[in-house]
Amino acid sequence: MLELRLVQGSLLKKVLDAMRELVNDANFDCSATGFSLQAMDSSHVALVALLLRSEGFEHYRCDRNLSMGMNLNNMSKMLRCAGNDDIITIKADDGTDSVTFMFESPNQDKIADFEMKLMDIDSEHLGIPDAEYQAIVRMPSSEFARICKDLSSIGDTVVISVTKEGVKFSTAGDIGTANIVCRQNKTVDKPEEATIIEMQEPVSLTFALRYLNSFTKATPLSDTVTISLSSELPVVVEYKIAEMGYIRYYLAPKIEE
């Protein structure tokens, strides 16, 4: 028996919007720790890892570990029927092939339940080793989204370089080139507007902008984004989900032949 009650139901809608461009079908894993997911895009270039910790739910009952295969577009279709202020409860019985999403309006005058068929998904779980990153950049998530969007109108790939001067995003295309440098800036009114660069050593890596633009669909989940870079490793783009967990995207770099 599984029953997860999330008062801030809109958060689940945002989580789905943050993943469904990248991944079609995925297994949601439910355990005492929380509600989690790990999935790669179809070309195995990017990986998304989601964790919503059990403590973040108003009610969390998961009698035994359960893996539920869902089509993210279908799940999103159902969640879009929930009001933004609705409380969402996810329910599943042991051994059934469906999951129920229950939506309750804040004053309890409307209660809806949507039952969705589950799928058998053959997914591979990957071990992500802890790594020391050469550079970690924290910046406003809206600024990162703007940079990725702007650069993708010029080129297909971005070189992200971190030096003691700051973090530089560069691209080149048929019509020309573009460079955007963000310097460390801690002297802001609000901490979420700061750009903070922790650099052990300079690093420069090339990535496909198409994937980074997909990652920025998570912008509504967090005011800030953390970008962790090391040569020879996928970049980690992390959006913290307040009081609940995170959504992390890993993107394999482009490698010079």
Partner: peptide, 14 residues
């Protein structure tokens, strides 16, 4: 031209 890397060459299946 740079070649696109693959996640499976960095992270192993468990």
């Amino acid at each position: 031209d740079a070649k696109q890397g693959n996640i499976l060459s960095f992270f192993k299946k468990i």
